[in-house]
């Protein structure tokens, strides 16, 4: 039971955040919804009612179809890759090896560097030229005799966006590692020791004790990585500029809003992104909350 004093204190503690989020998120989203239902095109606001016309146009727009496909591929590769790599790295670093701090900072460092240059470096690394102009990773592979790894990277039709996800994994897996490392460090050593006494192998300990205990961390990682992949923008621009095969909703939204001045349509893209997030995330969170309540 909550004591009376604490009953109000908890609401008091959280209310500034709720108010701030209400204004800066929900009021602004409300404005954006209104714009998405308007005919606004050009520099000056125009709230003339347009119904769901902007949405209908997007559903029929082949460019938007490419965007959805690219987002799905990017999200799949990026989220899975970062979680997998981050978890493996965290487990390796959790073994108490010498030089842990060095490796940890090294794996985290890519996150600190601005997208403008990491994008360009990846563009150079993933240069698909062949013959005498071969460069970047392809040149490296050729010189190491790994010719089978040579590929067209982000210029591969349809799956090119997965190469961009590789660059994003390079940049963000260090953070996933840190998330898991903090989670691993919070698991009481006694649990592990008890399992070891019961004769569990290290693999079993991770499989049956650590991974289940880390599921809240995995949830955090999924959501953080997921929100990044929906918004990915700067990295793609830096690697490939604005081009259709690697287009994503955030780029389309930027281009149609600020280059093309179709504010109504741009807002509609933003709202569709939000709706898709809501559809994906909310049931998952409700499920998590229910599971927690049962425990």
């Amino acid at each position: 039971m909550l004591r009376d004093k604490d009953r109000f204190l908890n609401i008091l503690l959280i209310s500034p955040s709720i108010l701030a989020v209400f204004i800066f998120v929900y009021v602004f989203i409300g404005w954006s919804v209104r714009v998405s239902l308007s005919k606004w095109k050009g520099l000056n606001p125009d709230y003339t009612w347009n119904g769901i016309q902007n949405y209908l146009e997007l559903f029929a727009d082949p460019r938007f179809h490419v965007d959805i496909r690219n987002t799905l591929i990017f999200t799949g590769v990026f989220v899975f890759g970062s979680i997998f790599l981050g978890f493996i790295l965290a487990v390796m670093l959790d073994q108490g090896l010498k030089g842990e701090g060095f490796f940890r900072s090294l794996f985290l460092f890519p996150m600190a560097i601005s997208y403008i240059v990491t994008g360009v470096v990846w563009r150079w690394l993933m240069n698909p030229a062949t013959g005498s102009r071969t460069s970047g990773l392809n040149l490296l592979f050729t010189n190491l005799g790994l010719d089978s790894l040579v590929n067209a990277w982000h210029t591969t039709p349809t799956w090119g966006i997965a190469a961009i996800a590789l660059a994003a994994i390079w940049q963000m897996s260090g953070y996933t590692m840190v998330l898991y490392l903090a989670g691993l460090r919070a698991i009481p050593q006694e649990l592990k020791e008890a399992a070891q006494i019961d004769g569990a192998s290290r693999l079993q300990i991770y499989r049956y004790i650590m991974i289940p205990l880390l599921s809240p961390v995995t949830l955090s990682a999924l959501i953080i990585l997921g929100h990044m992949s929906l918004k990915v923008f700067d990295l793609i621009i830096a690697i490939a500029g604005k081009q259709l095969p690697l287009d994503v909703p955030a780029i389309y939204m930027w281009q149609i809003t600020f280059d093309g001045l179709f504010y109504g349509k741009g807002a509609a893209i933003g709202i569709l992104l939000l709706i898709s997030v809501a559809v994906l995330i909310i049931p998952y969170i409700r499920h998590t909350l229910k599971t927690e309540a049962q425990q």
Binding site: R63, L244, I256, G260
Partner: peptide
């Protein structure tokens, strides 16, 4: 104008 150019650019991309 910008809107027209953006539409041409999108058509070119396709």
């Amino acid at each position: 104008n910008d809107s027209w150019k953006t539409e041409i650019d999108t058509a070119l991309g396709l």
